[in-house]
Nucleic acid binder design. Structure first.
Length: 420
RNA sequence: GGGGGAGUGUCCCGAGUGGCAAAGGGGGCGGACUGUAAAUCCGCUGGCUUAGCCUUCGUAGGUUCGAGUCCUACCUCCCCCA
């Protein structure tokens, strides 16, 4: 739908060229608004996990480009909506979170944003309100009269998120059903408070966002806009960032910069160009050059992707250090001391540490049973030697010059064990 | 309120008739091949002090040498009737 339209505003032009746009409620009018330089737009983030993950990165980048294009980004914390839980795209009701959990999650989530946009009091400075500010003190009857009277149940029942649940005969509680009402109200409230006129999000949010747009119109507010990004999958169709180890978290405490760098380094060939456009700030002509690299040369493009993406999130220094660790580990086969390290009491080394326990201790495998299986499959190595005997003992003699033992799980996951 | 059906390995789907650590997928992980890619092929995919032991089939009891499988009660969900 967007190919035919050529936005005049920097903001939309950039988003379009970089592949951020899936749907827009009114492309021309939004472009007009952005061109006038007064576009204020928001993305909502629920506090359902201790950190945001890579799936949230697309919308964060949208906020970044918004600010760069002269707009004002609002990163809305869903402290209030997290009390309810968004049923979109889910088959089952999510467990209700406690207030304490939500607060803890919120604390983990908010710190990411300052890396992607500038916060402050100025006209295009980003702000970060929390919808608990207005949702928590809502009066039920008042809400029903003021807002509920403008929301159509017929309309909501027709929404995909609801229709799918009903069609599959899966429970949809009244609580969850209200989520979209609250999100619609958020949009209107942000317009009242800050003059926000656009809401952005993933394509799964389209229905919820449109509810807000329509509510705004019925309440006689100014025209509101919906702008969604496509669901990002890998070329092989998998959802981004889903690995057995868990989600690709944006918080360094949950996923080290090194592992984050590795995630990007392992991008599929056919995704490199698309990901460079979405997840880095590199100029487009540079990206087109990089994506024409073929064969093994595309590895260079992947390194640049990893450097840029990691640099954005964790800083250039962390990115460089991750790149260096990877270079030594993979290209030289040398022992890089900056690999993730686990300390083990020296006494255990003196006594001799069983391989099985050692790998569990390093966090590379989940149980001794798994360690055993991996040994049978040839997947574990100590100091680059394949472990053949599950009864093997790691003692002080295994410590190399650097005073550490290198444990490897597969080709790519390495941990250093250090006695202390 | 009456009648019928369903809940299986804590990733998901899903066989399962008294001998079951439980078929088969998907997903994931590992190995081979490569370029730290994809595709392909192979292996693994409850826990432990692993010739063995322990814990799993909605929950709690019961029958039996032995129960995912049979019986009873309960919980949850779905369908039909009211």
């Amino acid at each position: 739908m967007t190919d035919a339209f050529h936005p005049r505003s920097d903001f939309l032009a950039t988003l379009q060229q970089r592949g951020f746009i899936h749907q827009c409620s009114n492309f021309e009018a939004l472009d007009e608004k952005a061109l006038s330089g007064s576009l204020i737009a928001y993305v909502g983030y629920d506090c359902t996990a201790p950190s945001l993950h890579i799936g949230n990165l697309v919308s964060i980048m949208m906020l970044h480009w918004l600010q760069k294009g002269g707009g004002k980004p609002i990163a809305l914390m869903g402290g209030g909506t997290s009390m309810v839980g968004d049923p979109s795209g889910k088959d089952q009701t999510r467990k209700l979170l406690t207030v304490a959990q939500i607060d803890a999650n919120k604390a983990g989530i908010r710190k990411v944003f300052s890396r992607f946009m500038t916060f402050g009091e100025g006209g295009t400075d980003a702000i970060m309100p929390d919808n608990a500010e207005w949702l928590a003190k809502l009066n039920y009857i008042e809400f029903l009269r003021e807002i509920g009277s403008h929301l159509s149940v017929n309309r909501m029942l027709a929404m995909d998120s609801v229709k799918l649940r009903l069609a599959r005969e899966q429970e949809l509680s009244f609580l969850e059903f209200n989520y979209m009402c609250l999100q619609a109200y958020d949009f209107v409230e942000l317009h009242r408070r800050y003059g926000c006129t656009a809401q952005m999000g993933g394509s799964d949010q389209w229905g919820n966002i449109i509810q807000g747009v329509e509510l705004g119109r019925r309440l006689g507010a100014a025209q509101l806009f919906a702008l969604t990004a496509p669901l990002i999958t890998t070329a092989s169709g998998a959802k981004m960032g889903k690995t057995a180890a868990g989600a690709i978290w944006l918080d360094a405490a949950l996923l080290s910069p090194y592992d984050y760098w590795q995630f990007w380094r392992n991008t599929e060939d056919s995704d490199v160009g698309r990901f460079l456009r979405l997840f880095t700030l590199l100029p487009l002509d540079e990206i087109s050059r990089l994506e024409t690299l073929g064969g093994a040369e595309i590895n260079e493009a992947k390194k640049i992707l990893a450097n840029e993406a990691t640099g954005l999130l964790h800083g250039a220094e962390a990115a460089q250090s991750a790149a260096e660790t990877a270079r030594r580990t993979f290209e030289e086969g040398a022992l890089a001391e900056s690999l993730p390290t686990v300390d083990v009491p020296g006494a255990e080394f003196d006594a001799g540490l069983g391989v099985l326990a050692a790998f569990v201790r390093a966090g590379l495998v989940a149980s001794t049973g798994e360690a055993r299986r991996q040994i049978r499959g040839g997947g574990l190595r100590v100091n680059d030697e394949v472990v053949a005997d599950e009864r093997a003992i790691i003692g002080r003699d295994a410590l190399g010059a650097a005073g550490v033992v290198k444990l490897s799980f597969g080709r790519k996951k390495h941990v250093l064990l250090r006695p202390n």
